[in-house]
Design a protein around this nucleic acid. Structure first.
Length: 502
RNA sequence: GGCCCCGUAGUGUAGCGGCCUAGCACGCUGCCCUCUCAAGGCGGUAACGCGGGUUCGAAUCCCGUCGGGGCUACCA
């Protein structure tokens, strides 16, 4: 550990807005996290400020490295870029708390030296017993401050017993109030403030210390975080005041904004384990980052009363944290998909193709990487499916028939329904009409089929084209038929009709 | 138990004392368009948790109540 005892930990004040996102790398990144990141990012961008991406991994476990990478991956996928932080660096790094342990130790030491924190020797059992009693008597159940004013002799006595102290911060006993950016005035009465642990007995710093320390050292001006942290805000405020006294950070206290929860169905908080909360899962399902972010923004914020589809830059332009709703929102996958569909339709045709390519590669329908000929098929077919899907992955079943060869299969249910005796008769007529075509275009195919089936067999369009569609595309649901036939090509189209006739 | 936060249709929101016979979107649903599925167009369904105040007037302000959530760790 580096000795920082003589290091200057102050920093100049600045008018620039600095917001941050500082997740703890545990489990899979979830949607509530993404929304917090989005709001904080949009806030920073709207005000032309900096966005800091820090990782709070003091509690590092085995899988935190993997989680860390997932987090970075997700942020990049969402295109929530950061000016300072992990991977990109910055003036106040490092940005992973596990690499900043010497700083926390030093800050704790200075707090202790200044008499703003103290050693407490209570055992877990003693604490528990007093907590129970307090609760039974209707008093607040936090730390009662028993060891706040221990004399050196008393401390020595505890040490002699072999007890190791935790370091507790000495909360000034007063009412705390602050103006929450999304909730307005919040007041916490003095009766509910207790001294909290900043350093464990084993010397490890806790979140209660590391988070405010880093915010102070990184010049964070606006703290946007989950509402679960609302009642611990007095701690941060008091700690900031202490920092100002002993020259840590810029001496100013940041503004706080507590974002409401995103809940799942029912009223439970969307947990990290919840499959519907798994962010990477959304990417795999074919959500667009633009679409997901747009939907997430709608959970607590509205760009106006009569519009809910917008781009990220429109959001940045219009975003005002005071417009954010304080009440929790339920995540509705149906609406999320609908919004995503709107964004799918907003994509430029060539962009759309680029976005669906990975799904075809992953399914093994095209080479990996895709060849130019295969890409050309998607370029031609793209416009046919772009307006019919909400999720990118839905393009795969719809266009599978264009890439299938020996493995081409017809959905059995659809076959039974459309290719009965009558349907096969229709397919035969279609085959005959198509075989004689001199040119293979959407127009000529349509003309031939209409003449032969609608006029010739006097069928309703629905009954005429259904069997052909199923025979050729393998499904009752497909892109427009004539275009599909043209794209598939004469030989394959006729072969597929032959196959159902055999 | 104590403290804090929240409460408009099934869901997300608009609404900041009169423009509200409460708007928009998703969902559900009827019709139109149509070669399937979509997309698109036109309709329908459905809400201010409850009770008191304040006011000429309240979804909007105040109080209470009920309901939901959070915190109350040597987790974050």
């Amino acid at each position: 550990m580096t000795d920082l005892s003589s290091k200057d930990l102050t920093r100049p004040t600045s008018d620039k807005v600095v917001a941050r996102f500082c997740p703890s790398p545990t489990g899979n990144p979830h949607v509530g996290m993404a929304r917090t990141a989005l709001f904080s990012w949009a806030f920073a961008r709207h005000h032309g400020g900096d966005f800091v991406f820090r990782i709070e991994d003091t509690d590092a476990s085995r899988d935190s490295e993997e989680s860390y990478e997932l987090l970075v991956d997700v942020m990049r996928w969402l295109k929530l870029d950061w000016d300072q932080g992990v991977e990109v660096g910055g003036p106040d790094g490092p940005y992973r708390q596990s690499e900043r342990m010497d700083i926390y130790a030093e800050v704790a030491r200075r707090l202790l030296d200044a008499g703003l924190a103290y050693k407490a020797y209570d055992t877990a059992e003693e604490l528990e017993e007093r907590r129970e009693k307090a609760r039974a008597e209707g008093r607040p159940s936090g730390y009662d401050g028993l060891h706040r004013d221990l004399t050196l002799e008393q401390q020595a006595a505890f040490e002699a017993e072999g007890r190791k102290p935790v370091i507790r911060f000495k909360m000034p006993k007063r009412d705390y109030s602050f103006t929450d950016l999304v909730r307005g005035e919040v007041k916490i009465p003095a009766s509910d403030v207790q001294d909290f642990v900043i350093l464990r007995a084993n010397g490890h710093p806790l979140y209660t210390l590391t988070n405010p320390t880093d915010d102070a050292l990184m010049g964070i001006t606006h703290v946007l975080r989950g509402e679960d942290l609302l009642s611990s805000t007095p701690r941060q405020i008091a700690l900031y005041e202490a920092f100002a006294q002993i020259g840590i950070g810029s001496g100013i206290t940041p503004a706080f904004g507590h974002l409401p929860y995103v809940t799942g169905s029912g009223n439970k908080k969307l947990s990290k384990r919840d499959p519907e909360s798994n962010l990477l899962g959304y990417r795999e399902q074919g959500f667009l980052p633009e679409g997901l972010l747009n939907y997430l923004a709608l959970l607590g914020w509205a760009i106006s009363g009569d519009r809910d589809v917008f781009t990220l830059s429109e959001m940045v332009e219009a975003f005002d944290i005071s417009d954010v709703q304080p009440n929790p929102a339920r995540f509705d996958i149906k609406k999320c998909e609908a919004i995503n569909g709107d964004h799918v339709r907003m994509l430029a045709a060539d962009d759309f193709v680029e976005r669906i390519v990975p799904f075809f590669e992953a399914e093994g329908l095209v080479s990996q990487p895709i060849t130019d000929t295969e890409r050309a098929v998607l370029v031609a077919a793209g416009p046919l499916v772009q307006e019919r899907i909400n999720l990118l992955s839905e393009a795969v079943p719809m266009l599978r028939f264009l890439f299938a060869r020996e493995d081409f299969e017809i959905d059995e249910k659809d076959r039974a329904k459309n290719l009965d005796e009558k349907g096969i008769e229709v397919a035969r007529a279609a085959r005959e009409a198509l075989a004689g075509l001199s040119e293979w275009t959407t127009e000529s195919i349509e003309t031939a089929l209409r003449e032969s089936l609608i006029e010739g067999l006097e069928l309703k369009p629905r009954l005429a084209f259904g069997p052909v569609r199923v025979a050729v595309t393998g499904s009752r649901i497909s892109p427009p038929l004539f275009e599909s036939l043209e794209l598939l090509g004469r030989d394959l189209s006729l072969a597929r009709l032959d196959a159902v006739l055999a």
